[in-house]
Design a binder for these strands. Structure first.
Lengths: 323, 323
DNA sequence: GTGAAAGCGCTAACAT
DNA sequence: ATGTTAGCGCTTTCAC
């Protein structure tokens, strides 16, 4: 390539990266040669030489869930214009994969890492703390993040729902959460819900756990155990899909919502506004989570010190017909 | 690292990539040293030396649309177990970005490329044909793909809906498609719909175009122009979101569906089964599209010749209450 | 403003 | 079974 333009390799490199520092004549010659030869610079070699890859890694549980996919979309939209590429890895909700993926991404010399996990698996945590790499933990707000965190206060979400239900006059609450303790998001919401009920003088909620909180039918199946024994008058599901499943179950069983049973979820999935009755839920800014994470990562990659270390993006209780 | 284990760099490399060809004693020494030093091999340098990056590029319009996100999930699930990483790029539905992204990915020396675009922009097409790289075009089935294609026959989709509506006895069809001609998927469905109506002796459908087919409210807004003049008795939307918006518009306006107006969509979005009345639509295997594309890409990366070059994954007409 | 030299951390090819 | 020798195609540093 340098030969085709009759200049040295450095000059080609400069034309590509800092054109201002090259004479006009040399520059036009190089540009013409690039066009003519169809030259595509080797970014791999560039990364090795410069020790900067211009790639950011993003680790999420899955892309099949719109919640995480739109976070990744946010990251992509934030860093793309700055010329960074996005390498995605999915764990399939398996915490052990977090460490393996983080390791693989470190090996690719990513310039930064965004990982959708509050508390990291111990191995991954140590690895990243040792790596001196810009890292953003997404979704949750740990006490002591590896580097930075962007998320939503899960306990506050549960608390807001508890206050709403209590304010509506419901007195016999129930709670459906994710069975896997690794799902710390669900756990935080449940914790806040329970604590606030107690503070308001309501009885502790009957608790149920779902193995697969992303399967709507599993929500419908929870109706029977939920109604056994003393019947609750309201139920909080830590995720929308289960709440919608429950709603469908109620429709089939002829149980009036919210007359006999009020239902609230979290996530404000596209479905929530459309089901009948429309679901009361909590809107979490999925896309903005990714967008802000991407923006903060850019600043960290540029070497800035970013404060505060934990950014709480907040949420919005969306009251609809189901409560 | 090699020094820490008291062996040559080559032996370390072999322990990592072909452990069988290393003596037990050397291997254990190296493994211990790796653990002790916390060594993370530099895959960038490895890529440069071996000329294989173990990265595949995926280009989609957006990740904010579940349809595309789940295709990427399929790709990730297909290639991840083989040790390949996924680099994603989003065009934001801007065809010009296709070429730029393809170029950037080529520069990263990706081992293969999956691109969710039927007919590529001319520049991108020439670039990829010249690159002698495994490439999978996703979603559509071009006559002459750059390399391989995995998709669904859009004309057949439109034809199936036309036959269904005609069979139900509807006689005054309408059609809502995406205004952007760059959306060749929408165009193919519309083409098949029109051709089949003609073949069945029905009048050409009244045509409407939406600028933003991903905005539900825009679907609702189409109701007024749709009903002006001679009123259609059925309408085919080339995407579910508009169809659902239309359904909502009908509910507000008190128009009976399917009594006064039958509505059909494409995509079998999660919403389609839940809206009232439940939407008749066409199920497209989004996830499998990505999965099969990933699998075929793996085979191509391994140097296999894959036939047939175009793989049609088919679709399923899902008849529900709206027609 | 431009070029020459050195080397980034690996792997391929060839020894031994 | 292991080591040695040469790069991979850039960027960095320093000279001019």
């Amino acid at each position: 390539m340098a030969h085709a333009a009759g200049v040295s390799a450095q000059t080609v490199s400069r034309v590509l990266r800092e054109p201002d520092r090259v004479g006009v004549e040399a520059r036009t010659r190089v540009e013409a040669a690039i066009e003519r030869v169809g030259y595509v610079p080797d970014l791999v070699a560039g990364s090795l030489a410069s020790n900067r890859s211009r790639v950011v890694g993003v680790i999420v549980p899955t892309l099949a869930n719109a919640v995480h996919a739109s976070s990744v979309a946010g990251v992509s939209d934030a860093v793309g214009p700055a010329g960074l590429e996005v390498l995605v890895g999915t764990t399939g909700y398996d915490r052990a994969r977090e460490g393996a993926l983080a390791r693989a991404f470190l090996g690719r010399r990513v310039d930064g890492l965004i990982i959708a996990a509050g508390a990291l698996a111990p191995g991954a945590d140590a690895l990243l703390r040792g790596a001196r790499l810009p890292v953003i933990q997404l979704w949750e707000l740990p006490e002591d993040p590896v580097d930075l965190a962007v998320g939503v206060d899960g306990e506050a979400v549960g608390a807001a729902v508890a206050r709403h239900l209590a304010g509506r006059g419901y007195r016999r609450p129930a709670l459906v959460e994710h069975a896997a303790p690794a799902d710390t998001r669900s756990a935080a919401r449940a914790r806040g819900f329970r604590a606030t009920l107690a503070a308001l003088g309501l009885p502790p909620p009957r608790g149920l756990a779902a193995e697969r909180p992303w399967v709507m039918e599993d929500g419908a199946a929870l109706l029977t155990p939920l109604l056994a024994g003393e019947r609750p008058d309201c139920v909080f599901c830590t995720g929308d899909i289960l709440a919608i499943g429950l709603l469908l179950g109620c429709r089939r069983a002829g149980i009036a919502v919210p007359g006999e049973l009020a239902v609230a979820g979290v996530g404000d999935s596209d479905l929530a506004a459309l089901v009948v009755p429309a679901l009361t839920t909590v809107r979490i800014p999925h896309y903005r989570l990714g967008l802000e994470a991407g923006r903060r990562l850019l600043r960290r990659v540029a070497g800035e010190v970013v404060a505060p270390r934990c950014l709480d993006l907040g949420f919005e209780l969306v009251v609809r017909d189901s409560t």
